[in-house]
């Protein structure tokens, strides 16, 4: 049984058909990349999985449990965290307060404190700036905060939406290293990226989305050598 199973997912915005029946699986421990151009439906897919958008058709199962109709605030407690596009940290709140909001659904204070220590270890810069308001952080630091905040819920799977968007090349490499590290500690990752080259370099498998449909799928290394992918997404 795959950790996350998507079957025949259809999503509409009014009369616009944004997802036209997509199906894919994410196995425990994998990094899966969803790549595709602007407007292909990558973010819509993530939003539907988390429950920010309702699907018209299809099912979403997390660890065998049907979560198709679960609203976003319930899927967090089921072990799914979502790092949204554009970071969306709470700019007025401190770094510490942002992280603690990530643990909103958890009760045990001692365990939360332990996770906080792990997050601070992984992101020492967040520890240094824990009292600063999140709005004063740089883009890369905000991305780290958004990731740290997601880790605070101790998820079994993290969905990441364009983590490298708008970051300097130095930060981009760092962020991808961090994603690999997070994955090594046992967290499954579903990654949406426009930076297809980077995404394919760390992913196990990938799916290529085009106007609401999956047009290609396979091992990341295979896709990297696929002529079609090379032309359309790797700029070669």
């Amino acid at each position: 049984m795959a950790l996350l199973e998507i079957e025949g997912l259809e999503v509409y915005y009014g009369s616009i058909n944004a997802l036209k029946g997509i199906s894919f699986n994410v196995e425990q421990g994998e990094i899966i990349a969803l790549i595709g151009a602007n407007g292909a439906g990558k973010t819509t897919t993530l939003h539907t999985i988390t429950g920010l958008i309702r699907a018209k058709q299809g099912t979403i199962r997390l660890a065998g449990k049907d979560i198709t109709k679960s609203p976003a605030h319930k899927t967090v407690a089921m072990g799914m965290a979502h790092v949204p596009e554009g970071r969306r940290v709470f700019a007025q709140l401190s770094v510490y307060e942002n992280l603690m909001l990530g643990a909103y659904t958890r009760k045990d204070k001692a365990e939360i404190a332990e996770t906080l220590e792990h997050v601070y270890e992984r992101f020492p810069r967040l520890k240094e700036r824990r009292r600063q308001s999140a709005g004063t952080l740089s883009g890369g630091e905000q991305q780290m905060l958004a990731m740290g905040r997601a880790l605070m819920s101790k998820p079994s799977i993290i969905l990441m939406d364009e983590p490298s968007m708008g970051l300097s090349p130095l930060y981009v490499s760092e962020i991808f290293d961090i994603i690999t590290e997070i994955n090594k500690t046992g967290t499954t990752v579903l990654l949406v990226e426009q930076n297809a080259k980077k995404a394919l370099s760390i992913a196990n498998r990938a799916y290529v989305l085009e106007t609401g449909k999956i047009v290609l799928s396979g091992n990341a290394s295979e896709l990297m050598n696929n002529e079609q992918v090379k032309k359309a997404y790797l700029g070669e």
């Binding site: 920010l52 976003a72 605030h73 965290a81 709470f90 603690m100 909103y104």
Partner: peptide, 24 residues
């Protein structure tokens, strides 16, 4: 309080608050 922090989070970004598990 946690409920108070949830209010601050909702005030700033309702969608992101939902992703934290806050019932908006």
């Amino acid at each position: 309080t946690k409920a108070g922090k949830a209010m601050l989070a909702c005030a700033e970004d309702r969608g992101a608050a939902q992703l934290m598990g806050i019932n908006v």
